[in-house]
C-alpha cells in the first residue's frame, strides 16, 4: 500500500499553484486506491494558505523563517527523515525551478527512482513515458527502486478535486535539521517579477527574428495583455538581446504547455518546436509560406507580423466587444 509525501512549496506565505495541483491530484488517486497522503511545508504561512488543499492526511508545517528560502541540502535532510519515519514509497514534488533542483538531490539520498515530465499516466503506472531528443522521441522508463519521486508540472486545464474532508495540520520541529554553518545560503530574491511565468501561462504570444527588433515586441505585449497571456521568444530573439533568456522557449529555454501559442516571425527550428510539443493549439504568423513553423501549426497566416499583428489586435477587440 503506497503512502505518499507531497512537498508543498510556498511563496510569500502561500502554497504555490503547482503544489496545490499536485496535492489534490495525489489525494484524488489515493482516495480511489485507499492509500494515504502526508504533506510537508516550511516557512511562515498566511492563515488562508492551506485553504485550497482537500482530502485526508496530515500536513507537517515547520514555521522557521529559514525555511522560506531553504537550500536543497536542508530540505533534503528534513524530507528524507520524514520519508523514513512515515514509510513513504512515493514523493511528489512540483516541477518548479526549486522542485527541479531538490528532486535529484533527494533521489540520490534516498536511492529513489526519479520520474520527471511523465506524459499522462497515473502514479501507479508501470512506466513513465517522457519526451527526449527535443520531443522527437517518446521514451518509456521503468522505475527500479522501491521509493519513487515524481516531479509534476502544472495541469492545463487545472483539475479540480473537491472533498468535504480537510487534511489536519501538525506543527513540525525542524530545529534538529539545521546545521550552524550551512555552506550555501540563498541571500536574496529580487522580486518585482510580477509577470506571469511563461511556463504557467495558458496563452503565449512569442516573437522571433522576424519581429525585426526589440521595439516591435510592444505589439506582442499588447496582444498578450489583451488575451490575458504572456510573451515568449525564440532563441534568435534572445540572442539578439531583444528579450531576456527567461522568456526563451525551446530546447535551450523553457518547455511550455499553453492552450494557445501564437508564433510571430518565428521560422520554426526543430529546437524551438521541441518546446511546443505540449501546446494544444499553435498559430503561426510568418512572411515565408514555406517556414517550417507552419508544419507544426494548426492555423497559419502568411504575412508580415508588423502588419498582421496590429490588424489581429483590432479584430480581437472587435470580437470581444460583440461578446
Amino acid at each position: 500500500m503506497a503512502h505518499y509525501l507531497v512537498f508543498l512549496e510556498q511563496r510569500g506565505g502561500c502554497i504555490s499553484k503547482v503544489s496545490v495541483d499536485a496535492w489534490n491530484r495525489v489525494q484524488q488517486q489515493a482516495a480511489q486506491e485507499g492509500e494515504s497522503v502526508s504533506g510537508f511545508v516550511g516557512g511562515p504561512l498566511k492563515p488562508t494558505a492551506l485553504g485550497e488543499l482537500y482530502g485526508n492526511g496530515t500536513i507537517y508545517h515547520a514555521q522557521d523563517d529559514a525555511l522560506s528560502l531553504p537550500s536543497e541540502t536542508l530540505l533534503c535532510r528534513i524530507l528524507s527523515a520524514l520519508v523514513a519515519e512515515e514509510g513513504c514509497t512515493g514523493i511528489v514534488i512540483g516541477a518548479t525551478a526549486a522542485g527541479r533542483r531538490l528532486a535529484p538531490y533527494l533521489a540520490e539520498t534516498l536511492h529513489a527512482s526519479l520520474l520527471g515530465g511523465c506524459a499522462g499516466g497515473s502514479l501507479h503506472s508501470e512506466l513513465c513515458r517522457r519526451y527526449i531528443y527535443s520531443g522527437l522521441v517518446l521514451a518509456a522508463y521503468r522505475p527500479e527502486a522501491p521509493i519513487r519521486i515524481f516531479l509534476q508540472g502544472r495541469e492545463q486545464p487545472r483539475r479540480s478535486f473537491f472533498s468535504t474532508d480537510r487534511p489536519h495540520c501538525v506543527s513540525f520541529d525542524a530545529s534538529p535539521f539545521f546545521v550552524p554553518h550551512e555552506n550555501l545560503l540563498i541571500r536574496s530574491v529580487t522580486s518585482g517579477n510580477s509577470r506571469k511565468s511563461i511556463a504557467e501561462s495558458a496563452i503565449i504570444v512569442a516573437g522571433g527574428r522576424g519581429m525585426g527588433g526589440k521595439d516591435q515586441f510592444v505589439l506582442l505585449e499588447e496582444l498578450a495583455s489583451l488575451l490575458g497571456g504572456s510573451v515568449g521568444a525564440s532563441r534568435s530573439a534572445v540572442d539578439e538581446g531583444w528579450r531576456p533568456h527567461s522568456d526563451q522557449i525551446g530546447q535551450t529555454g523553457k518547455a511550455v504547455a499553453p492552450d494557445l501559442y501564437i508564433a510571430c516571425g518565428i521560422s520554426g527550428a526543430v529546437q524551438h518546436l521541441a518546446g511546443l510539443s505540449s501546446a494544444r493549439t499553435v498559430v503561426a504568423v510568418n512572411s515565408d509560406p514555406h517556414a517550417p513553423v507552419f508544419d507544426a501549426a494548426d492555423y497559419g497566416i502568411v504575412g508580415d507580423v508588423r502588419e498582421v499583428i496590429p490588424a489581429f489586435i483590432g479584430a480581437v477587440k472587435e470580437v470581444l466587444q460583440k461578446k
Partner: peptide
C-alpha cells in the same frame, strides 16, 4: 534506479489550416 524500456518516434507535424485575414483568425 530507472531503466530505459523502449521508445517510439514522434511526429510534430500538424495539418496547418491557412487563414486569409486576421479577422477570420
Amino acid at each position: 534506479l530507472v531503466r530505459f524500456a523502449g521508445a517510439e518516434p514522434v511526429s510534430l507535424k500538424k495539418a496547418c489550416r491557412f487563414v486569409e485575414t486576421p479577422s477570420e483568425l
